[in-house]
Write a protein that binds this DNA or RNA. Structure first.
Length: 603
DNA sequence: CAAAGTCGGGG
DNA sequence: GTGTACGACTTTG
C-alpha cells in the first residue's frame, strides 16, 4: 500500500465488468512531482431517493427491479422540514434514468429525488473533494496488463482503497498550452472536407512558441513538416511531450477542435492526446458542442470572455484590445489563402499573425483563468465544466454541494410543463428613474453594497422560510407583493449567502495584511469570485429552470430593493439631493438648496 | 403581434 | 451519459 498526493484536474467514470469505475485525472505532488496520474475508485455506487406514497407497498414494488442493489431509509431536510426518504442504491449510473422512467408512474411512488446528478459530480460532492485542489489517496499502482484503456507508459494508473482525502492546498501552478490553426480556404468559410490546415501555432505559459507548417520560413519559431498529416502528428507529439494540464483555444470548441478531428480522420492521423491515450471527444451541450481531452482540460476562452466582459463583439482582436489596450495585427480570414499562396513577406506576416493569435490566447488566459479557477475551487465542479457554465449554474452546483453538506435534499429540476409555466412569470425588476436630460454639475452618487444579497439575508428570503400565513411579529412582509418570510430559523439560501459574505470579509482582511504581491493577487481573485457568487445568488429565485426557483422570493427581493432605494432617495431629498437618475441599487443626484426644489410627481 | 428562425466565434 | 441548456435580434405567418 502506498499513498499519492495530486492536484485533481478532471474526473469521469468508465465501465469495467458492468461496474462504474471513477477515474480522477491528476498531476502528482511530492515524489514524481508533475507527472500525470489516473486514480481509479471502484467502490462508489450511484443512488437516488424515492418519496413513497405507501411505504410498505413502495418497498415491495421496488424489490421487483433488478437495477436496484439496495433499499434503505435516509433522513433529510426538505423545505424546512425533516423527512424520511427511501435511498435506492443502483449497480450502474446508466441504470438511473432507466429505473427512474420505470418507477415514475407507480402508485406507490410519490416522487423521485436527486436522480439527475451526474455520477462524477455526485462523487466530488459526496467525497468532499475539489478540482484544482490537492487530494490524497491510498492504494497501489497498476501494471499495464490490468488496465482497460491505452495509456502512455509514464502515466501512473493507481487503484485506490478507502476514501480520498481533501488536502488544504495552495493555488496550483499549471502548465498551459494555447493553440490556434490556420486553414487555406479560398472559397468562403473553411470546409474541413477540402481545405487543409496550413499552420498550427502553439504558445505555452513557460516560454514555448512554435508554428508548425507545411511551408518553410527563416523565422526560427517555424517548424516545417512534410505534409499536413505529419504536421498533425507533430502536434500530437508536442502535446504528449509537453504534457500540459490545460489546452486553451479561442472558439476552439466550435472551430479548431472539430476541424482538427475532421482533418485527422481524413488523413488517418491518430489523435491520442488524452493522458489515457484517448483522442478528442465531443459532447453535445445544448446548442453547442464542447471538445474534451481526457486528463487535460480544454478551455475555450471565447465562452469565458462572453461571460466576463461586456462588449459589442467578442473577436479575439476585440477582447485583446479590451484587456491590454493594444491593437493586435490582423489578417482578414478571407485573405489568408492569398498570404499563403503569395509566399515571401506576405507568408512571413501570416506566420507572425498565426503565432500572435496563440500568444494572445495565452495572455488572455493568464489574465482571465484565475477567476474560473477560483470558481472551480469554490463550486467544486471540474474546471472543464466551470469554464462552460453560466454563473447561475455555478450557483446551483454550489448550492447542491451545500445542501449535501448540511443534509438537505436537493430539489428537482423543473419538468418541461413546470418550466413553461414558470417562463410566463417574471418578477418585476429594480426601480429605474429615467435620467433627467441635460448636463449636470455637482453630482453625487449613492449605491447599496450588494443590495440583493443583503435583502436575502436581512429579510431571510428563502424557499424554506416562505409561508402563507404567520404572526406579523414573527415574519418579514415584502412591500407591494406581500410575501411573508419567517424570521427564524435562518433559511437555506440566506445562511449560505451569509457565509459567502463572511468568508469574503475574512479574505479581504487577509488580503490587506498580505505582504507578498502574488499572494495579494490570489486573495483578490478569491474575494472577487465570492462577490460574484453572492451577487448571482438572487438569480436562482427568478430563472425558470433552476432547482431553487421561487417566483415569490424573486418578487420579494426586487420589491424590497425598490422600496429601499425609493426611501433612500426620499431621505436624500430632505437634505437637498435631487435624484437625476436611478437604477436598481443606486442613484445619482445633484445638490440643490432646499428652497429651489419644486414638487415633482415622482417622489 | 406572437412565433419561428438566425447567429455569435472561428478561417 | 443520474445528457440535450442561451439570449439578442430579425424574419415570417
Amino acid at each position: 500500500m502506498e499513498s499519492k498526493r495530486f492536484v485533481l484536474l478532471d474526473i469521469d467514470y468508465i465501465t469495467e465488468d458492468d461496474k462504474a469505475v471513477i477515474r480522477m485525472f491528476g498531476k502528482i505532488k511530492g515524489d514524481d512531482e508533475g507527472k500525470s496520474l489516473i486514480v481509479l475508485d471502484k467502490h462508489f455506487k450511484p443512488y437516488i431517493y424515492v418519496v413513497p406514497n405507501d411505504e410498505e407497498k413502495c418497498i415491495e414494488d421496488l424489490n421487483g427491479f433488478d437495477e436496484i442493489e439496495m433499499v434503505g431509509w435516509a433522513r433529510k431536510g426538505y423545505m424546512g422540514e425533516i423527512k424520511d426518504f427511501l435511498r435506492i442504491t443502483l449497480n450502474h449510473p446508466q441504470d438511473v434514468p432507466k429505473l427512474r422512467d420505470k418507477i415514475r408512474d407507480l402508485d406507490s411512488v410519490n416522487n423521485i429525488m436527486e436522480h439527475d446528478i451526474p455520477f462524477y459530480r455526485r462523487y466530488l460532492i459526496d467525497k468532499a473533494i475539489f478540482p484544482m485542489a490537492e487530494v490524497e489517496v491510498d492504494g497501489q499502482c497498476l501494471d499495464e496488463n490490468s488496465i482497460n484503456f491505452m495509456c502512455e507508459s509514464d502515466v501512473c494508473v493507481f487503484e485506490m482503497n478507502g476514501e480520498p482525502k481533501p488536502i488544504n492546498s495552495e493555488f496550483p501552478e499549471l502548465k498551459t498550452l494555447s493553440f490556434d490553426i490556420e486553414v487555406r480556404n479560398p472559397k468562403g468559410m473553411p470546409q474541413s472536407e477540402e481545405d487543409p490546415i496550413i499552420m498550427i501555432s502553439l504558445s505555452s505559459n513557460y516560454g514555448l512558441q512554435k508554428v508548425l507548417s507545411t511551408k518553410k520560413s527563416p523565422l526560427k519559431y517555424v517548424e516545417t513538416l512534410k505534409t499536413e498529416a505529419h504536421m498533425l502528428q507533430r502536434f500530437v507529439e508536442i502535446i504528449k511531450s509537453e504534457n500540459p494540464d490545460l489546452l486553451i483555444g479561442y472558439n476552439s470548441d466550435n472551430f479548431d477542435m472539430p476541424y482538427i478531428r475532421d482533418r485527422a480522420a481524413k488523413l488517418n492521423v491518430k489523435l491520442g492526446i488524452g493522458t489515457d491515450g484517448s483522442g478528442l471527444k465531443f459532447m453535445r451541450r445544448g446548442y453547442t458542442n464542447s471538445a474534451l481531452v481526457k486528463g487535460r482540460i480544454h478551455v475555450d476562452l471565447y465562452l469565458l470572455m462572453r461571460r466576463y466582459l461586456q462588449l459589442d463583439r467578442y473577436t479575439l482582436e476585440r477582447v485583446y484590445r479590451e484587456l491590454f489596450g493594444v491593437e493586435k495585427e490582423d489578417v482578414p480570414g478571407d485573405e489568408i489563402f492569398e498570404y499563403w499562396d503569395n509566399g515571401g513577406e506576405m507568408l512571413e506576416k501570416l506566420f507572425k499573425y498565426s503565432l500572435d493569435d496563440a500568444v494572445a490566447v495565452t495572455k488572455i488566459g493568464e489574465k482571465m483563468l484565475p477567476l474560473s479557477m477560483e470558481f472551480t475551487r469554490i463550486v467544486g465542479q471540474p474546471f472543464f465544466d466551470i469554464a462552460r457554465m453560466a454563473t447561475g449554474q455555478m450557483v446551483e452546483w454550489y448550492l447542491i454541494r451545500k445542501a449535501y453538506e448540511i443534509g438537505d435534499m436537493v430539489p428537482n429540476k423543473p419538468s418541461s410543463s413546470q418550466y413553461s409555466e414558470r417562463r410566463g412569470k417574471k418578477a418585476a425588476g429594480g426601480y429605474v428613474k429615467d435620467p433627467v436630460m441635460g448636463l449636470h454639475e455637482n453630482i453625487v452618487s449613492f449605491d447599496f453594497r450588494s443590495l440583493y444579497p443583503s435583502i436575502i439575508i436581512s429579510k431571510n428570503v428563502s424557499p424554506d422560510t416562505l409561508v402563507d400565513e404567520c404572526d406579523i411579529n414573527n415574519c418579514h412582509v415584502a412591500p407591494e407583493v406581500g410575501h411573508k418570510f419567517l424570521k427564524e430559523p435562518v433559511g437555506f439560501v440566506p445562511s449560505i449567502i451569509g457565509n459567502i459574505l463572511k468568508e469574503r470579509v475574512r479574505i479581504k482582511t487577509q488580503m490587506n495584511n498580505a505582504e507578498n504581491a502574488r499572494e495579494k493577487q490570489v486573495l483578490d481573485v478569491q474575494q472577487q469570485a465570492l462577490k460574484r457568487l453572492a451577487n448571482s445568488m438572487y438569480g436562482v429565485y427568478g430563472y425558470s429552470r433552476f432547482r431553487w426557483y421561487r417566483i415569490e422570493c424573486a418578487e420579494a427581493v426586487t420589491a424590497w430593493g425598490r422600496d429601499f432605494i425609493k426611501k433612500t432617495m426620499l431621505q436624500a431629498k430632505k437634505y437637498g439631493f435631487k435624484a437625476i437618475y436611478a437604477d436598481t441599487d443606486g442613484f445619482y443626484a445633484t445638490y440643490i438648496p432646499k428652497d429651489d426644489i419644486h414638487d415633482d410627481k415622482e417622489n
